[in-house]
Computed example of a mutant assay.
Amino acid sequence: MLLQQLQHTFKQVDQSRVFQSFVIAVIVISALTVGAHTYSLNPAIEFILEWLDKGITFFFLVELIIRYIATNNFKHFFKQGWNIFDTIIVLGSLYPAAGSTIFIARLLRIFRVLRLVSMIPELRLLVNALIKAIPQMGYIALLMFVIFYIYAAVGSMLFANINPELWQDVSISMLTLFRVATFEDWTDIMYETMKVYKLSWIYYLTFIFLTAFIFLNMMVGTILEVMSQEHSNMKAQTEPPKPEPATQQQVEQLQKQLTDIQQSLAQLSYAKKNKADELS
Rank of each mutant, 00 (worst) to 15 (best):
F10H: 07
Q12F: 09
Q20H: 10
F22M: 09
F22E: 02
V26L: 06
I29F: 12
I29Q: 04
A31H: 07
G35E: 06
T38P: 07
Y39A: 10
F47W: 08
I48A: 13
L49D: 02
E50H: 11
G55A: 11
I56K: 01
T57M: 13
T57P: 08
F59K: 00
I66P: 12
F77T: 02
Q80V: 15
Q80I: 12
N83I: 02
L91Y: 05
L91E: 00
P96Y: 06
A98D: 05
T101N: 12
I104C: 03
R106H: 14
V113I: 13
K132Y: 15
I134G: 06
P135Q: 02
F145L: 11
V146F: 13
Y149A: 00
G155N: 05
I162V: 08
L166F: 03
L166Y: 09
W167Q: 01
V170T: 04
I172C: 01
S173I: 01
L175H: 01
F178N: 12
V180T: 03
A181D: 02
F183L: 03
W186K: 04
T187V: 04
Y191E: 11
T193G: 05
K195S: 06
K198Y: 15
S200F: 08
I202L: 06
I208A: 07
I208W: 15
L216V: 10
L216I: 15
V226P: 02
M227R: 11
Q229K: 10
E230C: 01
H231Q: 13
K235Q: 15
Q237T: 03
P240K: 03
P240M: 03
E244Y: 07
P245A: 00
Q249E: 14
Q249K: 03
E252S: 09
K256D: 02
D260P: 04
Q262H: 10
L265S: 13
L265N: 15
A266P: 07
Q267R: 14
Y270M: 05
